[in-house]
């Protein structure tokens, strides 16, 4: 596996532009956004490091060669890219749209307000968490959202997980984990910027960037498949 290809594939599999709207939106929430993103990225890195560590053994146990794994991962990434490209942009995850940490009234408002969004986003499972969070529990709940849903299932998604596995088999545990960590760090980087207002030019640009990432991922996935097929 070409290392550059693996790195680009990892970044586009994470697709920070697609995930960005899911982070707490308000400009004044930057610190919280960063904390949540860091928790999510760190947790996902640990998880992916674990995957990288056992990748070779799992492959051996399954009697599958590295090249075949690459092809299979390429197929999964192809599906992921298709989803990222054609699906509607990810909607704000309710539990991630927390208000300023010490403002109970706004917390309540905001939580209520986003529950409906959650319904449309298909992440209703997280609405309950946010909804039950009281004032005292807001900080905890908000940071916990770095674990669920940010680390899992949003970051520890099959595409990135399997790509890390394949990269570990081909290029070693260190490279695979480092590439995954770098890719995940882009989510933390994106947390420096507040989400754009819906329907704004910036929101459109974010959506465009997310689709561009998906298109790049499609190319990377095709590259992996071809590479796997013509490997020896």
């Amino acid at each position: 596996m070409n290392q550059t290809l693996a790195l680009v594939a990892a970044i586009t599999a994470v697709n920070p532009a697609r995930l960005h709207p899911a982070l707490p939106a308000a400009r004044e929430n930057r610190k919280e956004r960063l904390q949540i993103a860091a928790i999510g990225a760190l947790t996902a890195t640990v998880g992916l490091g674990g995957i990288a560590l056992v990748a070779q053994n799992v492959n051996d146990a399954l009697d599958v060669s590295a090249a075949t794994t690459r092809i299979a991962v390429g197929v999964v990434l192809l599906l992921s890219a298709g989803r990222d490209f054609f699906a509607t942009p990810i909607s704000p995850v309710p539990s991630l749209i927390s208000p300023p940490l010490l403002s109970p009234s706004r917390t309540s408002e905001s939580t209520t307000g986003t529950a409906g969004t959650a319904g449309t986003a298909g992440t209703a499972g997280t609405a309950g968490t946010a909804g039950t969070a009281g004032t005292a529990g807001t900080v905890k709940t908000s940071l916990a959202t770095g674990l669920v849903p940010l680390a899992f299932p949003l970051l520890l998604a099959p595409g990135l997980g399997l790509l890390t596995m394949s990269a570990s088999i081909d290029e070693g545990v260190f490279f695979a984990t480092a590439a995954a960590a770098f890719a995940l760090s882009t989510v933390v980087g994106s947390a420096f910027f507040p989400s754009a207002e819906p329907e704004s030019v910036l929101a459109c640009a974010t959506t465009g960037a997310a689709r561009f990432c998906a298109a790049l991922l499609l190319l990377c996935a095709t590259g992996l498949i071809v590479d796997g097929i013509f490997d020896i």
Binding site: D63, V64, S65, T68, T69, V76, P158, G159
Partner: peptide
Amino acid sequence: ALGAVRAVAHPE
């Protein structure tokens, strides 16, 4: 995803 992987990557 794991099902898709298994369908593509059979044991050799």
